[in-house]
Design a protein around this nucleic acid. Structure first.
Length: 474
DNA sequence: ATGTAC
């Protein structure tokens, strides 16, 4: 088994050996490096062996084993060097992500009402496995939604035009091809749009416990004691089915492309190939599905807050996706190139001065939202000055699981987790009782350490630390 | 993550 070599306090290299075409790197503190699962190291070596990979393959502080690729992984491929796109490199929950809404309410106003708020949100926002969503789409509307994403949702009356400037891609991922999304994928989504889902997805009412960087906090409109609302969800059944369908197609086509897969879960296809283009068109449609879904939920949250706090406005701070593949310009050996950057459990973290950022954050870097587990802290950070050179402009996305769901359910009985949340003053409403144990804070790695490592490396600057008041889960 | 399982 290959081993990590310490480079500096927060950088660990997996040197290029065997079939690896490039080295891999892990960014994190010593405790995280020691705790890094052998499976992650094996998966990094596999990813670094794929055709057209541009080094290094990056594992972020919250990395843990995933399907083929680790979660918390960034891998870039050069289409002009035989580079590939991999469905496993994006993951099953395509464009799973987080958006944070601001309020003009303070924690003192909201804390006493948190039970009422939690009940109202739980009643209004559909969540849970297989739960129907807020609307049902015809075939025509389905294709329009898959092409238009957040912009489509705003056009349907869910949210406001200003929301779109606060989303990556302006709320619409270009290049979506609904024709590459199977009938089964569309069927699974038919009445699921605007639902939260289950697992680690949540809707959380939070407050700003601490401002850690004045410049970015001012640019983002964050202040101490302020109440915010974060929505964490993805592309539901549609994204899952897109991943399933195209993984199978890529696996079948791999031998024809002369690709020997180190692991069948790494199924991939050359970017220019029919299978590669088909997946990219379908994946982009799934990104739009996730953006539309978060936009619909945003509208529902605003309705609830408008009823409980008349006159209250909830402008969108920003929306980030954690599971994507995007064509971006990056310097390779000093030369700008277009690379297909896979981020799986990783957030884009464009730093200060990046030309394609919206006005409000161009000077300080884009908001990087790191979602915690229920009952623990979350962070807003700003894209860092060194992210471009170190991590293809990426930062970590959360705490990262420390153990699988089965082990978590065994280690943390739901009853005890509920009691502990009550003790720290967090109201929880969950569809699945069993899920509470699986999602116990103890099943996750240390989010403070992940944020600190990201800051120490210059991947991102900590803007604000958030604490939960109420959490809605599937 | 997921109509929790080819």
């Amino acid at each position: 088994m290959a081993r990590l070599i310490p480079i500096n306090t927060f950088t660990w290299e997996l040197p290029q050996t065997g079939t690896m075409r490039v080295p891999a790197v892990f960014y994190g503190d010593k405790a995280a490096a020691k705790a890094l699962e052998a499976d992650v190291i094996r998966q990094l070596a596999n990813v670094a062996s794929l055709p057209g990979v541009v080094g290094p393959v990056v594992a972020l502080p919250d990395a843990h084993p995933g399907f083929g690729f680790p979660i918390g992984c960034v891998a870039a491929f050069d289409p002009e060097a035989g580079g590939v796109v991999s469905a496993g490199g994006v993951g099953f929950d395509i464009a799973c992500g987080v958006r944070t809404l601001l309020t003009d309410l303070s924690v003192e106003d909201v804390a006493p009402a948190r039970d009422r708020i939690a009940d109202a949100l739980f009643a209004r926002v559909p969540c849970g496995v297989g739960q129907g969503g807020a609307l049902r789409l015809s075939d025509k509307d389905m294709d329009r939604m898959l092409r238009g994403g957040g912009a489509w949702a705003v056009g349907q009356g869910y949210g406001e035009a200003a929301d779109l400037t606060r989303c990556e891609e302006g709320g619409t991922m270009a290049g979506a091809d609904p024709g590459q999304v199977s009938a089964m994928a569309k069927d699974r989504q038919r009445d699921e749009l605007g639902s939260l889902g289950s697992g680690n997805h949540y809707l959380e009412v939070q407050w700003v416990e601490d401002i850690l960087d004045r410049a970015s906090a001012d640019a983002y409109g964050l202040r101490p004691g302020q109440v915010v609302v974060s929505i964490h969800c993805g592309s539901r059944g549609l994204g899952h089915q897109v991943a399933t369908d195209h993984m199978a197609a890529m696996r079948r086509a791999a031998p024809g492309h002369g690709i020997a897969l180190p692991d069948p879960d790494l199924a991939c296809a050359p970017i220019a190939s029919a299978e590669g283009q088909a997946y990219l068109g379908a994946m982009r449609a799934a990104v739009n599905c996730a953006l539309a879904g978060r936009q619909v939920i945003t509208h529902l949250v605003r309705e609830v807050f408008g009823e409980l706090f008349p006159g209250c406005r909830l402008p969108l701070l920003f929306d980030v996706s954690h599971n994507t593949c995007k064509a971006e310009r990056h310097a390779v050996s000093g030369r700008p190139r277009t690379l297909y950057v896979h981020r799986k459990g990783a957030t884009r973290a464009y730093g200060p001065g990046q030309a394609d950022l919206p006005d409000f954050c161009r000077n300080v870097g884009q908001p990087v939202i790191i979602g915690g587990s229920m009952g623990t802290a979350s962070y807003v950070l700003a894209g860092g000055a060194r992210a471009g050179e170190l991590s293809f402009a990426s930062a970590c996305h959360g705490a990262g699981r420390a153990m699988g769901r089965k082990q978590a359910a065994k280690s943390f009985p739901s009853r005890k987790v509920l009691a502990e949340l009550e003790r720290v003053g967090v109201v929880l409403r969950a569809k699945s009782f069993k899920g509470i144990g699986e999602e116990a804070p103890g099943a996750y790695k240390d989010i403070d350490a992940a944020a600190a490592a990201a800051q120490a490396l210059g991947l991102a600057v900590k803007t604000a630390r958030l604490r939960p008041l109420a959490c809605i889960k599937g």
